[in-house]
Amino acid sequence: MILFKKSPWILAGLLVILILAVFVASLNTGVIRLSPMNTFNALLGKGSSENELILFDFRMPRMVLSMCVGAGLAIAGAIFQSITRNDLAEPGLIGINAGAGVAVVLFIFLTGGVLEEVSGLSVFMLPLLAFLGAILTAGLIYLFAWKNGVTPLRLILVGVAMQAILSAVLIVLQLSMEDRDFNKALVWLMGSIYSANWGYVWSVLPWLLILIPFAIYKSRYLNILHVGDAAAMGLGINVERERKKLLIVAAALTGASVSAGGGIAFAGLVAPHVARRLVGPKHERFLPISALIGALLLLFADMIARTILMPSELPVGIVVSCIGAPYFLYLLMKSK
């Protein structure tokens, strides 16, 4: 049943190879085609300046960013699912992404900035704001869903309602923007790694490098929380405190990812599920695998998004939704 239960390292190796393969393939695809030879030369620093520009300033940051976003969303989704003991807790569906989005759009709106010209300090502000939006939304959802405890389905249903409200708020905000910004915001909110540059990568990477290892370090608690509150208390864990800590970690990861990639739904659902199927429910193993699968998923989805309707580009969130939504429905059908 669980294919790689005994050998997570082999699976990790396989995934890394797959990521590399997609990475190379993705480097070579796009509106402007580069031959593998040109790509290779450019990578070695011997290509033409035009090729280098395309590779290093347009494609590379975008691909690196999509991997970061994928890994971040995957871990965030895994944590949400474990601490709520709910397989369907998808940050995008329950409004966490929208909360982060509202914070970012509000910031851009209030400072009168233009989305694509967010630069300098603001780039580093964005993940922080998105984090605040995400954590606030998560808190509100928890609050509204709380009625002598939180049942999994009520939590999601409340989240769906929250998502609807926040989306409406977003529409109202967007409308107060200039036409040009309006379109940008729209594409961004649908989930896009459209205007990626190294600035975004540097603003997101530190969050991931700190939070993902921290989450993996907390695996033991996640394992126990996943089993149930009673068991966790029996084992002497301060359940509410650990849950709050982990909730903050998950919201921070979501915030960082959304600030860079926009509202990408269902990535946080698919990756952890597939990972759990492959290596079993122990978080030590399945968190790193989820991160890898998330990175692979987004990298692949971004390649599809760039190429499927060339020369126009799809927001990557749409591609991920088309993969993830059917999977969610499948899980929904199976749940009792």
């Binding site: 869903a145 009520r154 249903l157 929250m162």
Partner: peptide
């Protein structure tokens, strides 16, 4: 939306 929220809270239980 807020009304939906209220119903979700009620019905989910």
């Amino acid at each position: 939306g807020p009304f939906f929220l209220y119903l979700a809270r009620r019905e989910g239980g």
